[in-house]
């Protein structure tokens, strides 16, 4: 069996990042902490995708597809949020309108 070292190292790295993320949320939550949590999630997801899903050895086309999908997710999230950053929801006016 070849190439077992890389996934095991990736697994260890994953656990370290997970530990760091949980430590931060336990002792220093708040906006900065949350940003750190999300960054950790990105690192963990990348570790799984690169080492367990073979994105490292995949051909370029698959990488383009993976990136494109992430971009589409960003479009959906970004343009939807364009609405919500300029609008307040859940106000009492809305509630009384349906009551």
């Amino acid at each position: 069996m070849k190439d077992v070292k890389a996934p095991i190292l990736a697994w260890l790295a994953y656990l370290v990042v997970l530990g760091a993320s949980i430590t931060v949320t336990r002792w220093a939550p708040g906006t900065l902490g949350h940003v750190f949590n999300l960054l950790c999630a990105l690192v963990m997801a990348s570790l799984v995708m690169v080492f367990f899903m073979g994105l490292r050895s995949a051909d370029n086309l698959l990488r383009v597809f993976a990136l494109a999908t992430l971009m589409w997710l960003a479009i959906m999230l970004g343009l939807t949020m364009m609405d919500y950053v300029y609008r307040e929801i859940g106000s009492s006016a809305m509630l009384s309108a349906i009551a």
């Binding site: 589409w72 479009i75 343009l79 364009m82 609405d83 919500y84 950053v85 300029y86 609008r87």
Partner: peptide
């Protein structure tokens, strides 16, 4: 085609800026 969906919601109560962008 993926960037324009909000034009179905111009009068639905979405924010004006989103409307302009869409």
């Amino acid at each position: 085609g993926f960037l324009v969906w909000g034009h179905h919601m111009f009068v639905a109560g979405q924010s004006l800026y989103a409307g302009i962008m869409f």
